[in-house]
């Protein structure tokens, strides 16, 4: 009887610990976001004091330009895969012509932003939290604080803004390469000319498709950069802590990216038609 009581008691204790730590993380994450919003709004009035152009460009290069190869390759392959699958399925109806539209709409609305976000979460999100985590562990964040330099402004803001700018750019690149991937398969399997494929794609696409995709990618940028920074800043306990923080950052980013994707798809499909 006693062990049952004990395990029940310890289960309650564990549960309350989980609830407590979740509440703690939610509030401090919200606080970090609030600080960023506050700094951004101060920056609108006095941009020179808040935004350091050099830092933002540096991060844009590291996050955006250096992600181009991996985004390009994954998008191209995904476009090809999508085209292969659709030709295979549509062949039953003799409707292979629809491949172009399917790949075009699929990529601009959904797959382009999503595959970009997944690749960037793995590449950039991880590097943000590993870098900030190492800085936290080696007292560099404390040093910034004692020098009267706000670490959120100095470290978080440039990363946030850089990713906010680069993410839609990468998504557009991904859209293009996905469509090219679709064309390659259509050219090989269906003997379509490039001009014909292009016409079919443009005919199927609406401006709204592209825009909704870009809105999604902006929201993914916010998720990835903020979670990456947060997990980096709360690291404690040396190298092991940095590793755990990095893992959490990637896992949480992926979960929230996919959840946000589903949310926005629902929004643009059912609410704002």
């Amino acid at each position: 009887m006693t062990w049952q009581n004990n395990s029940f008691g310890s289960a309650i204790k564990k549960l309350s610990e989980v609830v407590n730590s979740t509440l703690y993380h939610v509030t401090s994450f919200a606080l970090l976001n609030w600080q960023v919003i506050k700094l951004m709004s101060i920056g609108l009035v006095k941009p020179g004091k808040i935004f350091k152009r050099r830092h933002i460009f540096e991060q844009m290069f590291l996050m955006g330009v250096q992600s181009i190869p991996i985004v390009a390759v994954t998008s191209l392959f995904l476009g090809m895969t999508l085209a292969m699958l659709t030709t295979y399925t549509l062949a039953d109806f003799g409707a292979e012509v629809w491949v172009a539209g399917l790949v075009g709409v699929g990529f601009t609305r959904e797959l382009g932003p999503l595959i970009t976000a997944i690749v960037v979460a793995g590449r950039v999100g991880a590097s943000i939290s590993a870098e900030l985590g190492t800085m936290t562990v080696s007292e560099e964040i404390d040093a910034l604080d004692t020098m009267g330099i706000n670490p959120v402004r100095y470290l978080v803001l440039p990363r946030f803004i850089a990713l906010l700018i680069m993410m839609p750019c990468l998504a557009i690149l991904s859209d293009y390469l996905g469509i090219i991937g679709g064309y390659l398969i259509s050219a090989m399997k269906l003997d379509m000319s490039f001009a014909y494929y292009k016409d079919l794609t443009i005919e199927a696409l609406k401006l709204k498709d592209v825009f909704t995709g870009l809105i999604k990618s902006v929201s993914f940028a916010v998720i990835i950069s903020m979670i990456g920074c947060y997990q980096g800043l709360i690291v404690s306990g040396g190298a092991e802590g940095v590793g755990q923080g990095t893992t959490k950052s990637v896992v949480n980013s992926l979960i929230f990216v996919i959840a946000a994707d589903s949310f926005f798809t629902a929004l643009f499909t059912y609410v704002i038609v």
Binding site: T134, M135, S138, E139, E140, D142, A143, L144
Partner: peptide, 9 residues
């Protein structure tokens, strides 16, 4: 002055 110097690497 921090224990390890805390220079930004």
């Amino acid at each position: 002055l921090f224990q390890s110097g805390a220079l930004l690497n």
